[in-house]
Design a binder for these strands. Structure first.
Lengths: 225, 225
DNA sequence: AACTTTTGTCAAATATTTGTAAAATTTGCA
DNA sequence: TGCAAATTTTACAAATATTTGACAAAAGTT
């Protein structure tokens, strides 16, 4: 389990990372919001411990940012709050964090809260089936069936379909698609994304029509009510 | 959340109900299709776990019945299937079940699948909407509806409408509109902006009147109280 | 009312975006 | 290595959106 700690105080950050690493987690520390965001572009942790007071961009801002993006809103976040704030008050602010740690907190407490949150948020479960009409994507088996008929998708096609089905109705820019599926910035001036959309549409048969093109933007999976 | 389990084996049924009840659900068990149907006449659950093999009326029949009625077709169903059946066969039965459990299944798995299905069916995604009367702009989907009816806007029309709706009542000069929507300084003495305003007004039907022209300046979206 | 300025409207011309096919390249694997 | 499948690129066709300029209509001015 990957855990990322965003904390400007180096000594606190080090002991957090050290403790988590010696408790079977893979912890990484970040001293500021910028470094954290950079890392987030290429990788996603399973849990985030976020200091509420950071130099530059504030922890609350960062939390809002995380909860706003569909990519990251599912990642549980534990906020580390300043000494003065009382637990009740903080919680009453309800910023969408999954738990709170009040400084100074012991490492034992931190680990047990991390475990509790992980248990609560990730009950060892994956969304293994995505459906839309007669279209079924089995994420465990990595198979796709169209009206009970198995079809064969390539890697990119599968990832595209997965992305669409897990956000039905949402319009994605080619940029976003490229980011999510290819994990890289979109180098425009090439028809790569459109190409894969085409092959996907063809393989999906009638269901291919569900992938609508949003002119000037990208594509969207249209789900009928 | 109310969950109903239709299962003829009493011991299995009991443990299902017990587990669900101790996991913050309100579970009720039914030993056969008849009892289940009776209950359905007066109440509706949020999710159904349905054994595929039942004495008398079969689970598949029951599923068909559920999916045929507009009252019940929205209720997610998890089918519990016998051990011997292979996944392919099960899927070939696919009549609209939302997930499958293969017997014998663990209670943890059952709970996690129940949660996953509920999450999938009741998406909690925050929608980013701009509204004015019967006019709704969904920023994530990049869709626009007028009195519940979807209308098709081009990129520029969409961006114009977005700008107006996010600043209701504010008058924009053509310069500002061009800056915001086109991302460029307004240069020539052409009718470009007016043109798009026109097509937008037409597509919005009656709501087109909301876009008022501010003579000598530009346009404004008028919102009535 | 006569005039000036501004905005609405239209259809043609232009530009942009997307679909498509095929070729070129890369990748995975026996 | 060499093959086959997957992926990317290139080039062009097709579809669609945008711009433009001429003129009509409307609104303000004198």
């Amino acid at each position: 389990m990957k855990i990322w700690c965003v904390e400007d105080d180096e000594s606190i950050r080090d002991i957090e990372v050290y403790t988590l690493n010696s408790t079977d987690f893979e912890a990484t520390g970040f001293s500021d919001a910028a470094a954290f965001r950079d890392a987030l572009a290429t990788d996603k942790p399973d849990l985030i411990i976020l200091d509420i007071m950071l130099p530059g961009e504030d922890g609350v801002e960062l939390l809002k940012f995380l909860k706003d993006s569909p990519d990251t809103c599912r990642i549980p976040v534990i906020m580390a709050t300043a000494k003065g704030m009382e637990y009740d008050k903080i919680q009453s602010l309800d910023l969408g964090a999954d738990d709170y740690l009040v400084k100074p907190f012991g490492m034992m407490e931190m680990v047990s809260r991390v475990k509790a949150v992980l248990r609560r948020c990730n009950p060892t479960e994956v969304e293994h089936l995505l459906k839309a009409g007669g279209l079924v994507v089995n994420l465990d088996e990595r198979t796709v069936t169209v009206d009970r008929e198995r079809i064969q998708l390539t890697l990119k096609e599968f990832e595209l379909l997965r992305l669409f089905l897990s956000h039905p109705g949402i319009a994605f820019t080619r940029d976003q698609l490229f980011n999510d599926v290819w994990g890289a910035d979109y180098i425009s001036e090439t028809r790569t994304v459109d190409m894969h959309i085409r092959t996907l549409r063809v393989k999906l048969g009638d269901y291919g029509k569900m992938i609508e093109t949003v002119r000037g933007v990208g594509y969207r999976l249209e789900v009928q009510a």
